[in-house]
């Protein structure tokens, strides 16, 4: 059968896998968010000990391949008795990885909020906690959106690595279909096109949000 017919037939199965991909991405980015903010705070406001700890975390995670981290979680942890399902290992691994990168984006955004803002906050009597919460954080969240959009798209792409630890996302579906039909190349062309469409739509969407939320003049 022709390529188009093949593509049409396998689309439903692939879309199932795509949903898993999207789930994976969303869970991972949320995990990354809740790791990233504290770590960024630790690097900007923490004492010596916390700073070193957070920096250590960021440097190691960013300095080693995601695939290795996934292997450690999925193949490595059983050695000490912890067995994770592929999906779990995937979102934990990708989530922690994203956390390290997000920490750096947040740190950059925090540091680009001008010092004078903090000083003004203190001068009207706020303590550090309040200043961070009401002045720094809101600005930081808006400044970080461009980097954060990048991160989301990177995650969509890197979620494909979950295939390597047997998570049932789109790549696994693809492989299964391929082993049935022996038309591996064409199946992956369809997968590539799905990613293309996914990433393009996501980018346009994020672009629009970015433009709406931009702080005027900054």
């Amino acid at each position: 059968m022709s390529f188009l017919t093949l593509a049409w037939e396998i689309l439903p199965k692939l879309l199932q896998g795509t949903i898993v991909t999207i789930e994976l991405t969303l869970i991972a980015i949320l995990i990354g968010f809740f790791i990233g903010i504290p770590v960024a705070m630790g690097r900007v406001y923490g004492n010596k000990f916390i700073y070193v700890l957070c920096t250590f975390f960021v440097e190691i995670i960013r300095g080693t391949p995601l695939l290795t981290q996934l292997f450690i979680l999925y193949f490595g942890l059983p050695s000490v008795g912890i067995m994770l399902s592929p999906f779990t290992a995937a979102y934990i691994g990708i989530g922690i990885n994203s956390g390290a990168y997000q920490a750096e984006y947040f740190r950059g955004a925090i540091q680009s909020v001008k010092r004078e803002q903090l000083i003004a906050a203190y001068s009207i009597g706020m303590n550090q906690m309040q200043a961070i919460r009401h002045i720094i954080l809101p600005q930081m969240l808006r400044l970080v959106i461009p980097s954060w959009s990048n991160e989301l798209i990177y995650l969509v792409k890197y979620s494909s690595m979950a295939y390597m630890i047997q998570a049932p996302e789109i790549m696994s579906q693809g492989r299964a279909i391929a082993s049935r039909t022996y038309r591996t190349f064409e199946v992956f062309i369809v997968i590539a096109l799905i990613y293309l469409v996914l990433v393009s739509i996501l980018s346009k969407f994020l672009d629009r949000i970015e433009r709406k939320v931009r702080i005027p003049g900054l």
Partner: peptide, 14 residues
């Protein structure tokens, strides 16, 4: 836009 892993497979099987 296409993930590295997919590209690898495309070239390998292609």
């Amino acid at each position: 836009a296409v993930p590295a892993l997919v590209l690898l497979f495309l070239f390998y099987f292609g």
